[in-house]
Design a protein around this nucleic acid. Structure first.
Lengths: 233, 233
DNA sequence: AGCCGTATACTCGTAGCCGGATATACGCCA
DNA sequence: TGGCGTATATCCGGCTACGAGTATACGGCT
């Protein structure tokens, strides 16, 4: 993958899309995006916006069209999308839709560190998450329901978002249930660690019987499927 | 939320966890994390690691314990976690597990821009994604299956990851199906736009009948549920 | 004894991101 | 008509991230 994307930033994508409708100055882009509800799916703040617009211009994907002056307000630069920009937009969208990228959600990171908490505390916190997720989903649904008259085509990202949250909720609920009815297999060893503060026999993050200084080697050496990335952003 | 987290970075969390086991120098932290399979859920690279360790030290969450010199290798600084660090770890984990944060997955962003593509192209790309997701899930499953002997407790993040991917797959499949059997309601209007390059009556991102310069206002004015963030990080 | 490949351990420079500051104009109310 | 709150429009400085580079040591082979 040579060079990668010149400007790789979701906000840049939104700018290209916005400008593919008609030329605009940055501030107007922002308000337009806001009015279209883009802030729900793309992080937008002015600092980034002007940086991104500058970069896009530098790489010839957009171009300054005019420096108009309406009323006696401060001058502003109107940008328009270029042919290169249109091409980039098409290609970029294709990639984003067709190929999933590895991302690092915070909850996944936290889960990988769950053993540092005691089993009891973990259960408690997971139950809190269940409640919070239920609330968040209800809110999103309500918001979505309030947007009557907007074609579904423009609400796909919201539908997707809700679907993902719901899947997460289901998964966490399952885990909570396993903890509560004690079908989760490692609860005793886990508790043991937190009581004595040492690994019990047959338990711990690596294959048993390792020496205190060994590399622990989750993946039994030689399993190396070493793939699973595909180039982050 | 005053001050927010001093060092807010998943890698910092991993460092705290790693040091809560025993003191280490940065390079050893990295290899330890790698051997535990942490790179699957947390982005790790040396540049960030040393920055993060420096910051943690600056904020008193970890402290340099000794500058040992083993053999005649370059000197290295061994860090240990402090009490403040242990407290921060506990609190941070609690927050990460209990309260979901708003994140911005790239696919969600792309979905919100899907209308810029033609319906046909979108369908094609979505089908590609389905295939890619199937493959990625199969790979993850295979990898997980290869990790026999590792207690489930240490594989939760992988299980979660697979569950999420699968939910996404299901959702995308559903969308593809709706496109293919033409039950998706907006296909005609969408096609129309791409043929004539103008909005048909009763269609478009905002409530119908708007003037060409109006703010479009997805959310009908006065709906403002204005919440839905929770402070990213 | 000399050489090279690999592991160890860290450093640096560039580039991007973001919050908040800045500066002007407008409109409304007293 | 003076003042203040809000909308318009942009810029800047500091912090963070990260890949690529550096430098040393070890060990095995010839």
């Amino acid at each position: 993958m040579p060079g990668r994307r010149a400007v790789a930033n979701p906000l840049a994508l939104a700018v290209l899309v916005t400008l593919s409708e008609r030329p605009m100055h940055p501030y107007e882009m922002a308000t337009t995006m806001r009015s279209y509800g883009k802030e729900r799916s793309i992080k937008l703040n002015y600092g980034s916006l002007y940086t991104v617009v500058g970069n896009l211009a530098k790489h010839g994907l957009i171009a300054a069209a005019a420096a108009s002056r309406e009323g006696r307000r401060p001058e502003r630069t109107v940008y328009e999308i270029t042919d290169a920009g249109r091409a980039e937009l098409e290609e970029w969208m294709a990639e984003l839709i067709a190929v999933p990228v590895k991302e690092y959600p915070q909850f996944e990171a936290a889960l990988s560190e769950l053993p540092v908490l005691s089993p009891g505390r973990a259960l408690e916190l997971l139950k809190d998450r269940v409640a919070a997720l239920e609330q968040a989903i209800a809110d999103s649904r309500a918001e979505l329901a309030g947007l009557t008259g907007v074609p579904r085509l423009f609400l796909l990202e919201a539908e997707y978002h809700i679907a993902m949250r719901e899947a997460e909720l289901g998964w966490v609920r399952g885990l909570v249930a396993e903890f509560e009815d004690r079908t989760f297999p490692d609860l005793d060893g886990w508790q043991y660690v937190h009581d004595r503060h040492e690994w019990p026999p047959q338990f711990g993050p690596g294959p048993e019987g390792r020496e205190p200084g060994d590399p622990i080697g989750y993946p039994p050496p030689g399993t190396g499927t070493g793939r699973e990335d595909g180039g982050s952003n």
